[in-house]
Structure formats: C-alpha cells, structure tokens
Design a protein around this nucleic acid. Structure first.
Lengths: 194, 194, 194, 194
DNA sequence: CTCTAATCGAGACGGTACGTCGCGTCTTACG
DNA sequence: CGTAAGACGCGACGTACCGTCTCGATTAGAG
C-alpha cells in the first residue's frame, strides 16, 4: 500500500529501523503543514526540516512531493473505504452512512487537513481509483447510470459534502449529516430507472 | 465581466485598441494550450509567445497566470450561469437541464478544455461564487438542506457530471445526459424533507 | 554646445519656445536628482516626472539618459575650462588656480552634484576631450612627459582634488585649497626634465 | 581576503572542493570578459556560462555582479599593495616605483583588463580602502596636505598613469614609466611645505 | 479668429537582465 | 561503506527599466 513497501523491496533491501523512522517522520511532518497551508505551497524543505531529516533523504524515499501525499492519502482512504463499502451491500444505507460519518467525525482533525488543504484532489483521486476497482465487479452495468459515472458521482458528492461539513463553523451533528449525505450522495444512484 | 471592463475603468482610462487586442490575444492563446496540457504545466512564456505578446506585458494585465485563467473562467461561467438559473425558477427542471446540456454540447471543445485541463478547479470556484450570490436571496433557508451546501452540491455534481461526459469516448447524447444530470445534480436538493 | 543647438537644426527646424522649455526642464530636473543618488540609479521616468514632461518626450530630445548628462556636463565644463586655461599661459599659476577654485566654490552646490554623484566620470571625460583639443596645439611635444598623459594627469588630479574638497565636511578655504591644487595637479607637469 | 574565506566560515562550514571550484571558475571567467567589454555590459549569464556554472549558483556565492568584481579586485590589489607600500618607507622612492611598474608590466594582461574595462572604479575604490588603512597610522597628520587627500591623490594618479600606460599603443618601457610615475604620483606629496 | 498640422502628455508595448525560488540530482564529509 | 547535509543545474517566476510606438488633447501659426 505505502511507498515504503514498494521502493526498498525493489532495491532488494528490507526496511531498516532507521529507514522506517524517516518514513514515519515524513508522513507525520506533512499533516500539520497541511493544516497550515495548501499542499502546493508546502516545500520539500519544510517537510524535511520539520521531520528532522536531510533534504536529499526525502528523494530516497519518494520520487516526488506528490508521492508522499499519495502515500498518506492511500493509507487513510483504505480505512475510509472499508467504512463506505457496506453501503452498497445492504438495503439500509442509512446505517452505513451514519457509521461512515461517525468515523470521519472521530478523526476530524486528520480529515479536515486532508479535505481542505489542497490535498483533496489527490485524496479524491485515490478514493476513486480504489472505489472503481470494487465497483466494476459488483454493480449492474445495464442500469440507466453507467457504473464509472455512478462511482465518480458518489465519491465526488461524498468528498464535497464531508469537506463542507469539516470546514463549517457550526457543523451539524453526525446524525443530521448522515441524513444529508444519504440523500445527496447515495440515494440518487439507487433511484429506479423511471 | 472581463478584466477589461473593470481595471482601466478604475484607473479612469478607457481601454485603448492596442490594449484590448493584447487582452483578447492572451485569452485566446490560453485555450489551445489548455487542450494540450494541464494548466499548471503551462508557462507564462508559452502563453505570451502564442499570443504574440511580450512576456512582461502579461504582468501589466494580470498579476498572475491564475488571474488570466480566472478571467477566462468568469467569462464563460457567466454564459453558462444564465443557462443554469432557470432551473430553479420553473417546475419543469427537465427542460432547463436539457437546455443547459445542449449549450455545453454545442461548445464542447471549449468546455472540454475548461473542465478537463486543470482549469476545472478555478472554473468551479467561479461558478460557486456566482451561484452563491444568486442563491442566497432566492432560496428557502429553513429547509433540511443548508443553502450553501445545496449550491455547493449542485455545482460540484454538475461540473463532475459534465466533465465525465466531455471526457467520455462514446458520450451519451444530449437528451440522455440531461436526464442523468437532472437525477444526480438537480433532483436531490428538491426532495421533500421526509 | 548643447544638444539643443544640434538636433533640431538637423531636422531643419528652429527650436520652438515649447521645445526649449522642455529642454531646460530636463536639465534642471537632473541636478537635484544627482544630489540624491548616483546617476546610474536615476531612471528616465524620474527625470521626466520631475521635469513635468512626458516620458516619450525625453527621447525626442536625447537618444539616451547619458546624452542628457553629457549635455549638462558639456555646458558646465565649458565654463570651468575658460577658468582653467589661463593657468598654462601665465608664469604665475597660483593666481589662475585660485581663480579656478573660487569659481568652483561659488557654484559648489552644482559642482558637488556633478563631482560626487556618479556623473563624475562623464564630466571628467568631457573635460578631457576639450582639454586635449586645446593642449595639442599649445604644448611642447618633446618634453619628458607626453602631452596626452600630462593633460590626463592634470584633469584627473584636478577632478579628484576638487571632489575631495566638496565632499569634505570641514573643507579648507579657497586659498589653502588653491595651494594644494597647485602643488598636486599643476606643478608636477611643469617640473624640469631633470 | 576573498569571499571564500569569509562567507562559509561565517556559516560554520569549510569550503568544499566543489564550492571552491565554482568560486575559482567564476573569478577566472570574469577576466577574459573584462578584456572584451566594459564590466557593465557583461551579464551574469555570460559569466556563469563561461564558468560552466548554473545561473542561480552565482547568487549563492555573490549577492551581485559587483560583489564578484570586488572580490577579484581585492585579491589583485592586495598583491599590488605589497609592492606599493615600501615606497613610503624608503628614502629612495625611485627604486620602489620601478619595482611597482615592473610588477604591473609583468602581469600587464591582467592589469589591462582591470584598469581599462570599467572595473577601474571598483579597483581604485578597493585600493583606496586598503591604502587608507595603512596610511592613517603611518603618516604625519600635521603636514600641509591632509592624509586622506594625499592617499586619494596618490592612488588616483597611480591608477590613471598606469592605465594610460597599459592602454597606450607604443608604451614607454618600465624604466621611463617609473620615472614618470615617480614625478607625477609620488613626489608631489613629499614636497616641503614651502 | 478659425482651421490644420505639428507637438505634447500619457503610457502600453517588446525586449532584456535581474534576482528569487523550488525541484530533483549529485557530491562530499562523517559516523 | 552507507547515510545525512547541502551545493548544484535547471528553469519559471515576477520586477524593473529601456527605447519605441500609438493615441487623443493641446496649441501654434497660416490664412
């Protein structure tokens, strides 16, 4: 899942203790920065400085600034996705939606950073990628709504709704929000054809 | 609407012929570039070269690359918005949605560039800004769905749906698409409270 | 002498009243600026703004910023040179030197600007040019000291000494200074060969 | 003396091999350019191109084009000054002056560039700075000639005379030139008060 | 006293160099 | 001998100024 597993494996080397420390430090350094400013405004130097890591070291772990964000996004999305999936397997979408909202609310500091800091695009992209993988085999392809558009709509609506929620000064509580999410992002794709 | 009307008026000077030529050239130079690559990859030098305009001249007109895009977006959005507005004033949303889709389809080359080239975010932002202005005075604030979220949802869903459409290899025809847009982006906000 | 006489004559037109006003305004605008900062730091826009003259108008009179300075220098040098020349025609160099110093002291505000503001190089160059013209026909070419070097030395020493004088916080009076100038800049070239 | 010693010492880091190579390359690239054109006409890009060094790297080392010239001047002046100083410590100024001229003649290619390329002003300034430091403690302050003016005169006359020499098509030989320098630049300041 | 043409102010423009910034590579010193 | 520190090449940015240009508004001189 994470870059960590892939890269050093290719170079034929297990992740040493020092390496994983660096790895973790970089991921953890990114989050507080995302709360301060947009991802594009963050420089690699800032990340490495805050992580207490050499500048060049960054590029030994990740080819890019984007790769780090992608790595961060992938981790968190995986968690969220396991909350989202049951929505489509149960008749009662309400319960699932509520679980999803509760989870996001619980980690709202993290998700606020991810959804409101310029990381949103990357995160949504990762979400989409994974959601499409699951959806392709599980959904009806003859419906009035093409599968890929359905997924794209759900994800977009979900991300938008949640980011509105987390940005809001006086956010509605989890239950109310789950109702809204259900009506806006989930129900529309389940409407009958006519 | 455009920078042309606003800026020189403020400085108390009419836009000369030369100025508006430059102005138009910059706007028109951006479009073909947006079809080739993402907005962030486009350099100011490319824009000015293609516009047949001096590099420094760009910054006399716009403080930023972003400002040019914003200007371009503002123009086109205004046109689209006049198509979108009637949706909310008529009982028959279908007809309005169809008109909207027809319009986009007619200018699909332009809109493809705007919606799929990295300009999408700016364009959506401008759309939102204008839509919020109109919505605040016209919509019911006591509904189950807060006005700003409703607008944000509609705009997002609309942009996402349309960009899917224009990206698609074998796009559905206008009528079908209008139906989808109606169900996904318009109807959900009009659902009764319970 | 001045650009004024030359340029418009070439275009076959007398200098109109308006033109000479502009001309004078530019020259007079340069001086206070030279007191504030080095000539290279002064922009054409500053000069024209202070002269109350259009930017482009500057280039209708002078091809260059340098040409204006050259013009200013030429005027003032001509005056100074008529004071300097007698030095070499009389046995008593002291009296002439004293007259020279007195003249400079009288216009010290002007000369301070010319000699300490970055205009010094141009002014010296102009001085040299004119001095060489006079010297070539009047001096002995068989002396131990080549004529052009002699002139160059005199001018340089004179300019340097005077500029030291005018920069100085507690400048010596005219009489003392004339003595110094005489010893440093004048006498050395009149030393016998052995 | 050079930037090399000062800057990195301040940041607590020795100058690496790469750094000093860059440093030397820049200094050596400037010289041939100074022979071709005036310093002001030389662009930083030309310097870096000829030095085989990245454009931005220049500014990592020097804040300015001027700073590089200053650095170059400081190095060479130090050498020359050690030749010039003995003049004032010996009764026989002739011998010292001759040594000075011989030294300059030996490195005439370098000095021609420094004295005739627009670098002269900077070089003279550096010369003055160092000469004043030495002079203040060694010369008689009660003389008819203020110390600072004496130094300024000597340096100016020396620079002017030497630059005339090196520019000259058929330059006098070292011995003759030393005589001239002695009479023009050195003896005048040693004249008795009356 | 009016009409016409030169000249002016204003300032946009193409161009060139500047100095800054950030990325991703590459070297070097140190543990 | 491998890892952290950071210098470097690259290239885009936005700024400043130059000298040219276009364009009304002004004004001077001929009729």
């Amino acid at each position: 899942m994470t870059q960590t597993d892939a890269k050093p494996a290719a170079s034929g080397r297990r992740e040493s203790r020092k390496m994983s420390r660096t790895h973790a430090a970089l991921l953890e350094a990114l989050l507080p920065l995302l709360e301060e400013k947009a991802f594009e405004q963050i420089t690699v130097r800032e990340i490495t400085a805050r992580a207490g890591v050499g500048y060049a070291t960054f590029f030994r772990r990740y080819p890019d600034k984007e790769a780090l964000l992608h790595d961060l996004a992938a981790q968190e999305i995986q968690n969220l996705l396991t909350m989202t999936l049951p929505i489509f397997h149960t008749a009662d979408t309400t319960a699932s939606t509520e679980a999803l909202c509760a989870y996001v609310w619980k980690h709202r500091k993290l998700w606020r950073a991810l959804l409101t800091g310029g990381a949103a695009a990357t995160l949504k992209e990762e979400y989409l990628r994974l959601a499409l993988l699951v959806a392709e085999e599980q959904m009806d392809t003859d419906a009035w709504l093409p599968v890929d558009l359905a997924v794209r709509f759900c994800v977009t609506a979900l991300v938008e709704t949640l980011s509105w929620w987390l940005k809001h000064d006086a956010p509605p509580d989890v239950h109310v929000m789950a109702g809204i999410v259900n009506r806006l992002a989930v129900q529309p794709v389940f409407l009958p054809a006519d």
